[in-house]
Each structure stands twice: as C-alpha cells, then as structure tokens.
Design a protein around this nucleic acid. Structure first.
Lengths: 152, 152
DNA sequence: ATGAGTGCAAATGTTTTGCATTGGC
DNA sequence: GCCAATGCAAAACATTTGCACTCAT
C-alpha cells in the first residue's frame, strides 16, 4: 500500500523523501483515519524528532493536489486529512461527545442532485456531508448517567 | 425584525448595546447572508469606526448561543455566520468560481437517518451539508468565454 | 451604581512564506 | 551536481483572553 502511494507521488514528479514516507506511514498506521496537521506532526515526531510543521503543511498540500488524501473540515474549525485510497467516496459520523469519527459509505447525492436540478440552475460538482451525533460508546454512557438526572 | 431579535436577546438577559445593534443590522442589511467575523467588522466600521474585533467575536458567540445566528464553516476554513430566523433549516450551494452562496431548503436528512439506522448504532443529532459547484452566473460565463476566469 | 459589555493589547493556535541549507535523483 | 524539498524563523491570519474602563439598565 505504501509502495503504491509512493509510486503515485513519484509518477507525478515528486521525490520520495523520508519526511513524505513518514507522513504517509502516519496515515496508514494510525487508528484514526482523520488526522490534523498537528496530529501528523506529533505521530511522526514521536518516533524520530525530525519533521517540521512547514514540511507537514507543504506535503499535505501536495498529497491533496496529487489526490492521495482529502481534506475535511469539521465544526472545530481545524482542517483534517484522510487517505483517499481508491477514490472511495464516503461521509463521516462525528461524535459530539468524544469526537471520534466513523465512516459511512452511504451518500444521498443522487437525490440531492435531482432536487437541485428542479429548484435551481446550479451545477453541482462536489459536496460535503457530515453528521453529528452520539456514537455507540457515548450513547451507552449517556444512558447510564441519565438515570441520575432523570429529565425528559 | 430587528426589534424581534433584540427582544430575544433582552429576554435572555443580554443588554442591547450599540455594538450588538450594529452587528444585527449588518446581517439584516447585507446582500450576502453568510458573513465572516471580518466581514461583520468591516460592514459596521464602514459607517462608524467603533467596533472592535474582540467585540465581534464575543457577540457572535452570544448570538450563536442564544440561537439568533448559526455557524457554517466552508472549505476555506474560515467560519461564517448567518441569521437563524424562524429556525429555518436549510443548506448551501457554494459557487467554486465566484464564492457566492445560495440557499436550498431541500434536505435529505430523512433518507440519511433511515440509512444510518440500518448500518450503524450512531444517534444523529445534527448535520452539515454543503454543495460546491457553479452558479448560473458563472455557468454562463464559462459557456460564453471559457478562457476568462472569474475572481474569488 | 453596578455589573455586563467594550476596547485595547497581547497571547494563542493554525497555516503560510522567505531564505539558506540539504538530500534524492 | 542540480533543483526540489526541508528546516528555521518569522509573518500572516483567525480567534481568544486579561484587564481596566464604560455604559445600559
């Protein structure tokens, strides 16, 4: 997998530096699939302390332009990035309690496009859909703690 | 309209200062319905140069918490705000060429929720949907002269 | 007159940039 | 060896905060 991503970079004329390898590895090895620039920086520097923030940002920009990653900005205002393997289109469920994100493959774009065509002359190209709520884990926590509060 | 919004603020214990009036007026009088903090600041200070950035941010936060406005963060990474009159749920069409935003009332949330229930234990609370593409104006420009690019 | 609200200035956090140096090809 | 890529430091933005002063109530 890492080889394939590096090959894609190389094919587009970019050099395969240790920093780029490390950034790609950070995405591949992390349990979280959505990472901020700061998280990428921290993950790589946990092992060897040699990755500068400028390099992180410059490379995230390159990985973005070459299509290896996608950018997502959640409600916290910070940009997150994720691997864009196989151009696999999907959306996110974001837990309002713990911040964990889940991926859903379901996408309502066809229904949306149909409706836009009817109501507007706008030509849709891309879209962004994120759903905020509570994950299983935090749902369970809420059930337990709501016994104390007993409201609603 | 302004009176109603100010009454809502007052009812929740907030004082009606000139700065708050000016910020509310900025939203009410602007052609754009999505405004950034900087735009609010500039609009108000075009008339009288007395509104500080801290005050803008502090008041946007208050208007957010009292439900008078909503926050939207588009792909540029900067927060935008819009009036939340009548709790009127809607989404946005954002032109990739000129940046103009259009509002659509259509919302696919029911279909989305149905699907989430089937595939996940996640409990949806809120969601964010934005559609990027080209507005009528820029569509027309592209057809006429594809070499001429629009500003942002 | 009192505390909420404001202005100011400084801090914080994220992202970008100029420039000299380094390292992949 | 060449030029892209990096590190460093500083700048550019967006946003937040501490503190003294002001103004709506």
């Amino acid at each position: 997998m890492r080889e394939q991503l590096e090959a894609l970079l190389k094919k587009q004329g970019f050099k395969i530096t240790n920093q780029r390898k490390a950034i790609i590895s950070a995405f591949l090895n992390s349990k979280k699939h959505l990472l901020t620039a700061a998280e990428v920086h921290d993950i790589v520097n946990k092992d060897n302390n040699t990755l500068n923030f400028s390099t992180v940002y410059r490379n995230l920009e390159i990985l973005l332009k070459t299509g290896l990653i996608k950018r997502v900005n959640l409600d916290n205002g910070v940009n997150s990035y994720e691997l864009n393997i196989d151009n696999h289109h999907h959306h996110h469920l974001i837990c309002l309690a713990c911040g964990d994100t889940e991926t859903i493959t379901y996408c309502p774009i066809e229904e949306i496009n149909k409706n836009i065509q009817q109501s507007s002359k706008f030509t849709p190209i891309d879209h962004k859909l994120e759903i905020y709520g509570y994950c299983i884990k935090c749902n369970r926590n809420n059930e337990k703690s709501s016994e104390k509060q007993s409201n609603t």
